[in-house]
Design a protein around this nucleic acid. Sequence first.
DNA 1: AAAAATTGTCTCTTACAAGAGACGCATGTA
DNA 2: TACATGCGTCTCTTGTAAGAGACAATTTTT
Lengths: 259, 259
Amino acid sequence: MQDGNALAVSADEKTTASREKGLNRVLEILDFLHTTQRAIGIGDLAKGVNAPRSTTYTLVRSLVDAGLLEMAGDGNRVYFGKKLYLYGMDYVRGNDLLRRGRQEVDHLSRETSELCMLQSGRYTIVHSSPGTRPFRISSATGLQIPLPWTASGRLLLAGLERAEIEAMVSDDDLVLPDGRKLELDDFITDIAKAGVTGYCVTSGLVDAYTKCLAAPVFSAPGKVEATMCLVVPIDTSEERTGSLIGLLRDRAGRLSIGG
Amino acid sequence: MQDGNALAVSADEKTTASREKGLNRVLEILDFLHTTQRAIGIGDLAKGVNAPRSTTYTLVRSLVDAGLLEMAGDGNRVYFGKKLYLYGMDYVRGNDLLRRGRQEVDHLSRETSELCMLQSGRYTIVHSSPGTRPFRISSATGLQIPLPWTASGRLLLAGLERAEIEAMVSDDDLVLPDGRKLELDDFITDIAKAGVTGYCVTSGLVDAYTKCLAAPVFSAPGKVEATMCLVVPIDTSEERTGSLIGLLRDRAGRLSIGG
DNA sequence: AAAAATTGTCTCTTACAAGAGACGCATGTA
DNA sequence: TACATGCGTCTCTTGTAAGAGACAATTTTT
């Protein structure tokens, strides 16, 4: 339950004006569940995706019958179902990079490490390992973050045209969590630099006390398919940072194909 | 005007007769990809799910845009996409049983072990660990097998009414891989027995040289939510079998809630 | 106990998506 | 060269699914 009202309706809301295709509604439902990260009542779901109640009931029934969704334990709530898990595992199996990347990340170091990819224009943590420090800097799988906030973002966009980059980055994305505004030109300069050096380090972007180290994983020469990324305390020494970058580039390089 | 006679249309064919809902087509597409376990061309996909080509192109584009599917590396093939992986991970996260069950299974023993659940009326391996024997008996996640072929199947149906069981088990399901036919009554007797003893062992059902040991995981008193299962060589000694069953029941019991 | 809000189901209408099929462009093969 | 086969896009028609809304049955609030 979020606050009942006053949640500013994002101005440029693409008013789901008239009759909407069932499939699109379903896609919205899935995305909505992904953001809520919890089972939700069908009525609330209808509100959440701004769909008619009757339609939502029909669609949810189809999805539950198909196993993509499941009625959650207590009764009248729904959440993701086993079938989606199975499909997800199929994806992993079919995706050599992800399979091997998960292993690498799991064994990378005592720091929090992540495997990241582009997902519909956003930086997405597809796998993460919390590391073994006493105080972990954790991050959740599936989390999506604006590209300019991260070191990985700079690498993932390396090799793209300026126009493509502009299309992927909204103005909002350039505003950091603490309110600072990044200049698009600076960001593009960073991207170019990251592309050349083959790694990227950002300090204090997402928050004031962490530093991100990232190295690219290539699926073809010049094509950055994913990144491996370490999140470390911002006061990590130059020396250790350097050696971690070396480790990271080594591991990422081994994942690459024709990199 | 229609032709006035009875043009022989294969009447009871389960032909997706006329216009089919887009969502249903999508569900068929996903299932089809799950069975093929590989990227496939859109034309073939259309044939595979018996859908018009133009429709298939439209739907696939939607799904690719949404990230549920991805164009596979070489160019014009599609397979599951990252988004499904993320949803699948959400399912795991929301599903305490599966999360813990995976860990248990991974550390269970040197034998091939599996976590199994009912998925739309079929026995489904939701997670498996290949074990560490020199010659592994392996099985794939997501594989679906008729309930009567397995020890787990007997446990998963424990507590259901006879009518419910009959509804879930087709005649085909009662025919074992080697051609032998199980009697429904015998199967139901087995189920009752398994429900009482709290474990189940089957020998040489799926193939001639393996034995399945299974123990139930309860989500509520009397409700079997999943099973943990070991696949061992059929000549495994009585003694070792017994001790493995003990181990299995112990682990499964710890996963259970109010079991 | 009455009032208000929610849940799940059902009916009916019409806006629109599913589908047939043509088209141009690649391939492969006689 | 012609001929076939497959791919991706596009147009137009019509069968049908999305949606509005009424309903009874809860559940929650007053």
